[in-house]
Simulated scan of single mutants.
Amino acid sequence: MSRISKALLEQLIESQKEIDKLNIMTSNAILSVEDKYEKLRKPLYKKRNQAIKRLPNFWATSFVNHPIILRFLGEQGLGSIRKLKVENLKKINMGYRIHIYFYENPYFKNKVLTKEIRFGNAKSGDWTTATSTNIKWKKGMSLQRAKQNSLAVYKTLFEWFSDTTYKDFDFIGDYIRDDLWVNPLRFYCKEAAPEDTYKEEFGNEFKMYDEDEGDKEEYEDNSNEEYN
């Protein structure tokens, strides 16, 4: 490498360092603003919940009407959903918890199921992790297959809920947090975005997880403890 090329490369490296530094500052500023406005949303969520209580089967209907949830998880067991609550961890970029409350139902004994998604850190090599409440299935009524494949292809909401093995991201959890929780009214009123909108976002994955006709799965009957 010539002396001139080496000098230019050093200048380029220094310029890139300054850009990277500014990008980090930008990300931190955005997170600070998001945290600020998340605090402002909390009383509005409480106010919204008071109105939701007066609408019959609001959350069950909203879940069933969400095209991604219906497409990837089906609607088995969704009719028992009484309430949804999503909360971020101490900071938005740390992760979030999803609480799903249920009416008395023929499948399991739990009144509420909680799943926590804790984001990883690429720089430190940490993976995204998840923990969830163990579902106490009633005898012979489990909606989980005894064996699930490793591609995060779920048959029910409860298979997604119990899966804590992935290491990158949870697209179902993201849709519940960023789409269904943020504006459930449009799904309750069947005003969700057209299916084509989600197809554009998911591409071939939207078709990849179609269920084959006649596909019969064995479900396990497992009565677990409170937490994984």
Rank of each mutant, 00 (worst) to 15 (best):
R3S: 12
R3F: 10
I4N: 07
I4M: 06
A7W: 13
L9D: 10
L9P: 01
E10Y: 13
S15R: 08
Q16H: 11
Q16T: 11
I19H: 05
D20L: 10
K21H: 11
L22I: 14
N23D: 06
N23I: 14
I24P: 00
I30K: 10
S32H: 10
V33F: 12
E34R: 15
Y37N: 06
E38M: 03
K39E: 10
K39C: 02
L40T: 11
R41H: 09
R41M: 12
Y45E: 03
Y45H: 06
Y45K: 07
K46G: 00
K47F: 05
K47Y: 03
R48Y: 01
N49M: 14
Q50L: 13
I52H: 05
I52N: 02
K53H: 08
R54M: 09
P56L: 09
P56C: 09
F58K: 11
F58R: 09
T61A: 10
T61F: 07
S62M: 09
F63Q: 02
N65K: 07
N65W: 07
H66F: 03
H66N: 05
P67S: 08
I68C: 06
R71I: 02
F72P: 00
F72K: 01
G74E: 01
G74W: 04
G74N: 01
E75I: 04
G77M: 11
I81Q: 13
R82H: 15
K83M: 13
L84R: 12
K90T: 08
K91P: 00
I92N: 05
N93P: 04
G95D: 02
F102A: 11
F102L: 15
Y103H: 13
E104Y: 06
P106N: 07
K109Q: 09
K111M: 13
T114S: 15
T114M: 15
T114L: 15
R118L: 09
R118F: 07
F119S: 02
K123G: 04
K123M: 12
A130V: 02
S132F: 09
T133D: 15
W137P: 01
K138Q: 10
K139I: 09
G140L: 13
G140W: 11
M141D: 00
L143P: 00
R145G: 02
V153K: 06
K155E: 01
K155P: 00
T156F: 05
L157W: 06
L157R: 00
W160R: 01
W160F: 07
W160C: 03
F161G: 01
D163Y: 08
T164F: 07
Y166C: 00
Y166S: 03
D168S: 11
F169I: 04
D170P: 02
D170C: 01
I172F: 05
D174Q: 05
D178R: 07
D178S: 09
D178W: 06
L180T: 06
W181T: 08
W181G: 04
V182A: 12
V182P: 00
V182N: 10
P184R: 04
L185M: 15
F187C: 04
F187D: 03
C189V: 08
K190C: 11
A193Q: 10
T197S: 08
Y198M: 04
Y198K: 01
K199W: 08
F202H: 06
F206D: 00
Y209L: 12
D210L: 10
D212E: 07
D212H: 04
G214I: 13
D215W: 09
K216H: 08
K216D: 08
E217M: 04
D221S: 09
D221I: 10
N222L: 15
S223I: 13
E225Q: 06
E226A: 14
Y227L: 14
Y227D: 05
